[in-house]
Design a protein around this nucleic acid. Structure first.
Lengths: 197, 197
DNA sequence: GCGTTACGGTAACATCCGTCACGGAACCAC
DNA sequence: GTGGTTCCGTGACGGATGTTACCGTAACGC
């Protein structure tokens, strides 16, 4: 029984190639051949590892969620309190570095690809909701006085702020500078942490 | 010199077909043949009217800006004061109806198409900045006490909130309901209109 | 009414897409 | 070493894409 391969490692490598192509050439450039070239193999390997382009994209989207999730976990763990945890998680979701701006471009690419593709949309929506739920939980840690619905409303505003800044900065980083992103996030954050009432 | 056509009307019709295809089939389905079918003509007419696919997309993006601009003008004119004008313009930019959700899908499609296309990106960024400038002006009307930089910061947060909600609602309208969109926008709006200091 | 001219449909082009069948190469058991 | 089995690169396929050249046709000036 010869020749075993590390299937998971190949899937990770190919998914990383999907991100690289998506960040560099955008959604129109995301072809199996481009992914294979990026990964240093042929389309043969890609289609032996995944059941077609759709499965490849879904796995790449899953892995992106895993990656951002780990970063959020680390941000939560390093924080000194509930408010710091919420702030750190949201700050680490912004496009404050070139690497993160690349990631935002990839996120936009997946979003646009998911709109007409029900399978990919299901995956994309699930991960977006998971982030929303995470933020709602952190809001609850900061404001246990809030009812669940109020936490959800605060989380929606925070997540929309972050993803809006990411989408805008992906196309126009000169206008949506890191400083402006941070300032905008702090504005919304203040409505959660320092309610006027 | 026979047979003159209304070139502008054709351009508008073809651009409207671009929106329809982009809303229904997404960016991957946006082909010249699909646009021609939607407009009830052939690719021959499309390419006699525009210098290729890129020019068609840029014009369609221009027209989308014009359309949203007219809506914002109407919202501003109908408002009873500076605060109402700001609120109305932002509310009309949200995805509160099916038609607006379609428009948000189109906006996401243009964004994703613009990321790897410098010409289209230039157009897209210009229109996004115009909206930002408009919002900054309305903020100035509400809060003449604010310095220009502070107005800009407030406008960035408001625009990011609106576009973030649109992007999220485009893929997941069940989570980002009209009510939640309005509530989230009011939260950010309150930091501009009722500053805690 | 006729000729000229712009218009727009048709069909082809080369290219690229996703996918698949084939065959050689690599690897482990014996 | 030898056989058997898995892996993966090769090359081809049908179809779709953007673009172009061609040509019939409809409309205006005279």
């Amino acid at each position: 029984m010869p020749r075993h391969r590390d299937v998971d490692a190949q899937r990770r490598r190919l998914s990383a190639a999907v991100w690289a192509v998506l960040a560099r050439d955008g959604l129109p450039g995301l072809t199996l051949r481009a992914v294979a070239d990026e990964a240093g193999c042929t389309t043969g390997l890609v289609l032996h590892t995944f059941d077609g382009k759709g499965a490849l994209l879904r796995h790449a989207r899953d892995l992106l969620h895993e990656r951002t999730g780990l970063r959020a976990d680390a941000a939560t763990g390093a924080a000194t309190g509930p408010a710091a945890a919420l702030r750190e998680v949201l700050l680490h979701a912004l496009s404050l570095t070139d690497e993160k701006r690349e990631e935002a471009r990839v996120w936009v690419g997946f979003l646009a690809a998911a709109l007409p593709d029900d399978d990919l949309r299901t995956v994309h929506v699930r991960h977006n909701r998971a982030f929303l739920t995470r933020v709602a939980g952190l809001v609850g840690d900061c404001r246990p006085d809030l009812a669940p619905a109020a936490r959800q409303h605060a989380a929606v505003a925070l997540v929309a702020q972050v993803e809006g800044l990411n989408a805008l900065a992906a196309a126009d980083p000169e206008t949506y500078t890191p400083h402006r992103q941070r300032t905008a996030l702090e504005r919304v954050l203040s409505t959660v942490l320092e309610p006027a009432d």
